[in-house]
Design a protein around this nucleic acid. Structure first.
Ligand SMILES: NC(=O)c1ccc[n+]([C@@H]2O[C@H](COP(=O)([O-])OP(=O)(O)OC[C@H]3O[C@@H](n4cnc5c(N)ncnc54)[C@H](O)[C@@H]3O)[C@@H](O)[C@H]2O)c1
Ligand SMILES: NC(=O)c1ccc[n+]([C@@H]2O[C@H](COP(=O)([O-])OP(=O)(O)OC[C@H]3O[C@@H](n4cnc5c(N)ncnc54)[C@H](O)[C@@H]3O)[C@@H](O)[C@H]2O)c1
Lengths: 215, 215
DNA sequence: TTCACGCTGTGACAAAATTCACAGCTAGGA
DNA sequence: TCCTAGCTGTGAATTTTGTCACAGCGTGAA
């Protein structure tokens, strides 16, 4: 089984390679990809082992071939089908971003329990009521959903999604969801991330001041 | 030096404790906090070692005292002062969320380079032009900033922030920023997180199907 | 007061993640 | 044709992270 961290880095390499290809580059070495991704060259080589792609000692990695290998490994050549639950301020931002086609992620359906929102179309995506979740998802190949409802509602919504056959959840609510072992949860807790950054910011800030004083 | 992961868990404990206190609980054991945080009891005890708080074998941890210790460790009793750069769809969502006071994070100033947006007040927060960034931040204690500008602009904005004395960056743009070693960057790459969740979702999905077939 | 239960705090251990370091290869130059 | 410089792929070492397991303690019961 391949680790979460490795998967994160591999998706990052994918993004970086797309950019490099757009700039006309056809080959690169592990240390160059490493610089772009802000990791070590050894890390890059180690990561690429898991997808089976093998480079050439003299010319390095072939950008197109490596992209193909990554594509095949991730098996998302046609884009990633997802659903979104909770069309509030965050949900709307995500809709407008991902419906504009700036990435390989496709939001195929949105859901909300507010009758004032359901039935309408936002950024080109129809908003369905919650009681139509199961049947709407049954018509699609969605296996991953974005949860942007208030914390108190997130578990309920998650249970509904799991019941509808979703195996991946990206959770923006500041709660830890309970799911069966066949469901993967990625928590994107903005508040917690800011707290973390603020903590280290203060540390670095103090350290910098100290050093200034010692001079 | 205490690790990033430990800090993340400690902030999570803080959130959970606030909730428990609101429900009137005065004491809890490591295994109870562990259940709430979805970690092991040993992990909780190990984490609490770093903040120096020590519980009682018979009564466990005192919610209020533990909160005080955490507060003191994080030193953010008055809220976390931050700035936001890039008032687009994501920036607006963050403004409306954090200006509503639902957390201990305070956005003291917002910045944008679009003259159509600067000068206005959104969700109670004034939007300043970029050329006023340094002097505006000089008047505050902000040491942590949220970056919600397009990927191509993120590095430029980061450089300006670092120049203005910011030591913590929460980066929502899908690029890896280059910063001096005295600056901490937390990347919140939504696209990458969705890709990760989708990958594991497909794996779990396939595994579930296999097991169903084997019955 | 004494005892026993069930917790905490932590040294020792285990697992996971990363880096080191080097054999082996390969294209370009002599 | 045969070197050679400088890369890749990977076993081994190292570092980081998490868990185990148990001594020691505090409380309530007797
Ligand atoms: N907006 C932000 O920038 C931000 C920042 C950090 C965290 N979050 C988290 O993201 C989540 C959403 O935040 P928001 O600001 O968009 O909230 P919001 O209140 O603006 O939107 C929530 C939406 O969910 C819908 N909803 C509520 N209960 C539902 C249910 N049971 N089923 C389906 N839909 C339901 C509501 O109708 C509403 O449209 C929250 O958990 C919040 O803590 C948001
Ligand atoms: N909106 C989302 O849900 C979402 C999802 C994933 C990632 N992101 C990332 O978040 C970032 C912002 O996304 P968005 O959808 O809000 O974009 P947006 O285009 O709606 O907003 C960007 C804002 O930044 C401002 N800006 C541009 N250049 C600037 C500069 N040099 N200095 C100051 N301000 C500047 C623009 O005026 C605009 O207000 C992007 O990097 C995007 O990739 C957003």
């Amino acid at each position: 089984m391949v680790s979460e961290k490795t998967i994160s880095r591999l998706t990052n390499y994918q993004t970086l390679l797309r950019l490099q290809q757009a700039q006309g580059r056809t080959h690169l070495f592990s240390h160059q990809l490493a610089d772009l991704a802000r990791v070590t060259p050894a890390q890059v080589r180690r990561d690429l082992m898991v997808i089976g792609y093998t480079g050439n000692p003299r010319t390095g990695y072939h950008v197109g071939d490596l992209q193909d290998s990554l594509m095949q490994f991730f098996a998302f050549s046609t884009g990633i089908p997802t659903a979104l639950v909770g069309v509030g301020s965050l949900g709307r931002a995500l809709l407008s971003y991902f419906m504009s086609g700036r990435s390989n992620i496709r939001i195929l359906a949105a859901f909300d329990n507010d009758p004032g929102k359901t039935g309408r179309v936002l950024s080109g995506c129809r908003i369905h009521p919650m009681n139509r979740l199961r049947e709407t998802l049954a018509e699609t190949t969605v296996s991953c959903a974005l949860v942007t409802v208030p914390g108190g509602e997130a578990q309920k919504v998650t249970d509904a999604l799991v019941g509808a056959g979703v195996h991946g959840i990206v959770n923006f609510a500041p709660v830890r969801l309970k799911v069966p072992p066949t469901v993967f949860v990625e928590n994107l807790d903005v508040t917690s991330s800011i707290e973390k950054a603020a903590f280290f910011a203060r540390n670095y800030s103090l350290k910098t001041q100290e050093e200034t004083n010692h001079e």
